[in-house]
Simulated scan of single mutants.
Amino acid sequence: MTIEDFAGPVAIIAGGLSHERDVSLSSGRNLVRELRGLGVEAQTYDFDRNLLHDLERDQVAVALPALHGQFGEDGEIQTLLELIDLPYVGSRSRACRVAYDKGTARELLRRAGIPVPDSVGLSAQTFRDIGATALMSHVMDRLGDRVVVKPARGGSALGVTGVDGLGALPSALVGSYAYCEDALIERFHDGIDVSVVVLEGDEGLRSLEPIAIEYEKGHEFDFSARYTAEFVSLHRPDLDDKLIAGLGEVACEAHRVLGLDDVSRSDFVVSADGTFVLLETAITPGTTETSVFPFACKESGTSLGEVARTLLERAVRRGA
């Protein structure tokens, strides 16, 4: 089946109620623009109480969720689409619920032999009941003086803080708990940030060109910097071909281990000696104008619109 055979419009589901609503809307706008440029009848639907009614009213043929964070990557939108038997691009709800939790996903990756940072999970309840004084020195003894604190569920660097020294750790945790009741404290790894997008087709998995991400100094953990061109630059990493191939293979393996479908993005830190760790694998890669996904498509000789169209066609063939 090709895009011309669709009985109804393509729904790009964006917005929602999470902290990443604005990013999601930007992702959705870019997808609609790209698809319409290829002649695809695509339109945006917000994640609200009218969503299911609107999808059924318009006889939507297939959906592509562009929701980030809660409700978009935690299995909620996927569950709703499965309930109404609407074909959609992306991972099934059960896989999303597992992969969205960074601690759970990281343990699955570690067991599969994929290098991940050493980390400690700490809930807000434990932090309150046990107290910072009793916990913090033990955390630093295990992980070192430089750590990264992040919400166990969420994305776009919201609630993420780089910590250098024991004194700053409690406030970083409090900031993380504003976004999620569970935090992950991980060992800091120095190196370059490299992301690899994985696509799934009828012939299996393939990785797009790895993309290096550089942030202006002081904006490494800044939410706004990820979506402001003057603070972030994307380019092909200056790494040898064997290492680049290795990153692609690990990204594909992470996709398989987590049981994901269609598309994912794995984020690495690559050290100067060529070793690397996998920080996390995103279920719904961003598609804003400053996101890795569109840039990786271009560097790989295609476009975001062409890739999205292929994934939509595949979703329709697969069915709900």
Rank of each mutant, 00 (worst) to 15 (best):
T2Q: 10
D5Y: 04
G8P: 05
A14S: 07
A14T: 04
G16T: 11
R21D: 05
R21H: 15
L25N: 08
S27L: 07
S27F: 04
R33F: 00
R36M: 00
T44C: 03
D48A: 03
R49V: 13
L52K: 05
H53E: 08
D54M: 11
E56I: 09
R57Y: 08
Q59A: 05
Q59C: 08
A61T: 07
A66E: 06
L67M: 11
Q70M: 10
L81N: 06
L86D: 01
P87A: 00
R92H: 13
A99K: 00
Y100H: 10
T104P: 13
T104V: 15
A105L: 04
L108W: 13
I114V: 10
G121A: 09
S123H: 11
A124Y: 11
F127C: 10
R128K: 11
G131V: 02
L135E: 06
D141V: 08
D145W: 14
R146F: 10
V148E: 12
V148D: 12
A152E: 11
G159C: 07
V160R: 12
V160S: 14
V163H: 09
D164G: 13
G167Y: 15
L169C: 15
V174L: 15
G175Q: 13
G175L: 13
Y177D: 15
C180R: 07
A183I: 13
A183C: 14
L184H: 02
F188H: 14
D190C: 07
I192S: 15
V194I: 06
S195G: 10
V198C: 06
D202R: 06
D202V: 00
R206W: 02
S207E: 03
S207L: 00
I213C: 09
Y215A: 15
E216T: 01
F221V: 01
F221Y: 08
D222A: 08
Y227Q: 06
T228C: 10
T228N: 13
S233G: 12
S233M: 10
D238A: 15
D240W: 05
K242T: 10
L243N: 04
L243E: 07
L247F: 05
V250L: 13
V250C: 12
E253S: 08
H255Y: 01
V269K: 14
V269I: 15
V269G: 04
G274H: 06
F276C: 01
A282G: 04
T284K: 01
G286L: 02
T287N: 03
C297N: 06
K298C: 06
S303V: 09
G305A: 09
R309Q: 10
L312H: 05
E313R: 03
V316K: 08
R318N: 01
G319W: 05
G319A: 05
